[in-house]
Amino acid sequence: MRARRSPEPYLWLLFSGGGVVAALVLPVLVLLFGVLMPLGIVDWPAADHLRGLLDHALVRVALVVVVVLCLFHAAHRIRHTSEELLGIARFDLPVALLCYGAAIAGGVVAVRLLG
């Protein structure tokens, strides 16, 4: 009997890779741009300075990788959690398509912004 190929292992791989990336980079970014700067505790950097950072090819590539991995991580977890919380595991295929589809759409947005 031939084993049926399943995308699940790759999805789990993306999930855990995204989990590590999200853990390492997101808290500090949210802390700075989402909390400290809006509250005025830290000054916003000059627009030119941030623009300069984004002009580095390395920063752009890193940002795209961060966006794609984190979105896949979130999509995978939201897929499973919504199925367990709401009891909709019967609709796994549409739920999965919706979650991963949204992640792919976000990745496309990132590539178009930074490409």
């Binding site: 995204g18 999200a22 997101l26 970014l29 949210v30 741009f33 989402g34 916003w44 627009a47 941030l50 623009r51 984004l54 940002l63 961060v66 966006v67 984190c70 979105l71 991580h73 979130a74 999509a75 995978h76 977890r77 939201i78 499973h80 959690t81 976000g106 947005v109 990132a110 912004l113 930074l114």
Partner: peptide
């Protein structure tokens, strides 16, 4: 712990909005 993923997704949206603003010149 599972629901943290919703905010991981939100953080990415927020980050992309920031990047778009910086590239547009509409950081203010």
């Amino acid at each position: 712990r599972e629901l943290t993923s919703v905010f991981v997704a939100w953080s990415i949206v927020f980050l992309l909005m920031l990047v778009a603003a910086v590239l547009d010149g509409s950081l203010a």
